[in-house]
């Protein structure tokens, strides 16, 4: 019974969270904390913190975490499944429509309008990640003590390397993690 309830809850979270990671937070809050009490508010905050430290979408992380807590690996599987079923069905349905009609002039017009908007949305997501990474409080400020200089150095070095040498991005991220991480640890010790 608990499996069915979890499946149902995460189906709703998957189905109604439009527009990126944080859009799913109110729904997770509603379903997981308020309706079922599967997590306490402070556990939920922990899930968010850990979500930012681990790869993958917040909804998937929350699903796995809640599922594991309640019913171990079968629970995690059930909750994750619930989370991805709506995406799968809707994405494939929309893709079918797109590939069927993409030669039509109206469809081409729609896509011509969407492409620059998609670039803009990626840019603005990038900007907020940049602010989060480069300023100590995640708020833009010109006070020297608020700027995270290690992060600024890592950022500029990574960008130059990416633009000039066009290496594998994952290698750049891993290198930044090791070198930047070492720099933070050394700074802490001084």
């Amino acid at each position: 019974m608990i499996y069915f309830q979890m499946l149902l809850s995460f189906l709703q979270i998957g189905l109604f969270s439009f527009g990126g990671g944080y859009a799913s937070l109110p729904l997770i809050n509603e379903q997981i904390i308020k309706a079922h009490g599967w997590l306490t508010m402070s556990e939920f905050t922990d899930v968010l913190t850990i979500s930012q430290m681990t790869p993958g979408p917040i909804a998937i992380n929350a699903a796995t975490f809640v599922g594991m807590r309640i019913a171990g690996i079968p629970g995690a599987l059930t909750a994750t499944l619930g989370c991805v079923i709506p995406s799968t069905v809707v994405a494939i349905a929309l893709a079918k429509i797109y590939y069927k009609y993409r030669e039509m002039s109206v469809m081409k017009g729609v896509m011509n309008g969407l492409r620059p908007a998609v670039v803009a949305m990626i840019a603005s997501a990038g900007l907020s990640i940049m602010v989060q990474a480069l300023w100590a409080d995640g708020i833009v400020s010109f006070a020297a003590d608020k700027i995270d200089f290690i992060a600024v150095a890592v950022f500029i070095a990574s960008l130059l390397v990416l633009r000039i040498f066009k290496p594998n991005q994952i290698a750049v991220m891993a290198a930044a993690g090791v070198l930047g991480g070492a720099a933070y640890l050394i700074m802490d010790m001084i």
Partner: peptide, 30 residues
């Protein structure tokens, strides 16, 4: 999820992640 408090409070983990975050911003900007 099994030992998340130790993970959350680990200094090495959070230092590496902070280093990585700056590179993530660079990857997107690129």
């Amino acid at each position: 999820s099994v030992f998340y408090i130790a993970f959350r409070d680990n200094r090495i983990v959070s230092a590496v992640l902070k280093g990585m975050q700056a590179a993530v911003a660079a990857v997107i900007l690129d």
